[in-house]
Amino acid sequence: MIQTNSSLAKERGRLATVLRLLWADKFACFAALVLLTVVLCAVLGPIWLSDEATRQNLRGRNAPPFELERGLMYILGADQLGRPLLPRMIVAARNTMAVAAGAVICSMVIGSALGLVAGYTRSRWSQVIMRLGDVIMSFPSLLLAVIVLYMLEPSVANIVLVLAITRIPIYLRTTRAEVLEVRERMFVQAARVMGTSDRRIVFRHILPVVMPTLITIATLDFAFVMLAESSLSFLGIGIQPPEITWGLMVSQGRPYLTNAWWLSFWPGLAIILTTLSLNLLSAWMRIALDPVQRWRLEMGGRKNG
């Protein structure tokens, strides 16, 4: 361990530790690389490639993949209007990621805030909050999303809203359960005896203990939300053209399945790779963020099954 006083060096030391733990699990390493690529595509792709992704080329309609005569952009083939698939997928990464990230962040912030209140205070509010969570849980979520989106205009903001609301109970319940346990621990008792304010106890002493669990769940949930958004877009009530997401691309390729399989295949593969990476990373986090299990990674990554 690097031991210096400057906070910068400490920060760097922490980053090095994370990277070392990541390196110990080759699957997680691969997952992190895939996710990094997807995020880069989502951030930079639309800036460079949005022209390329919307340029129609009717002579290249449904052009097959792995042919280089039209240029590198057409390596994955082209869609029904001759638009090259590779840049389209890169551009679509932005909407796909934005919707999932928006929904996960909203539901995590709202859910965990409510969970902290419900777990920490014994007031009537905590009962109200828990019942509210039960109510959301008892709704058939996908059907509800279908109805609400059909009625409220399927815009990006509405999709984020609907998905976020249906995911709130997960964070709410987890946070509350953890807070109920952490609240009774010695260091919280000690802080209270010393006269620490409630706000400081919650944010300074309880939240950091709960955070790793929340982040692990959020990673897993990101995959779930992405699949849900893809399903909605696939059904035609999610993102609307000319905006694109991977789910929408799969559905746009569906009529051409028999003669141009690549239209649906590549975006679907992109979804699988991303969700798979999220799942792998979440599995790694569960170990890396847990002080009791971290040795599995520090031992050199042999026994991290």
């Binding site: 399903s231 799969v250 559905s251 679907g268 979804i271 699988i272 969700t275 799942n279």
Partner: peptide, 14 residues
């Protein structure tokens, strides 16, 4: 893991 990550509509059409 792959099974848990795959979108069902994609598996269906494949």
């Amino acid at each position: 893991l792959i099974g848990a990550s795959a979108p069902d509509f994609w598996i269906a059409i494949v």
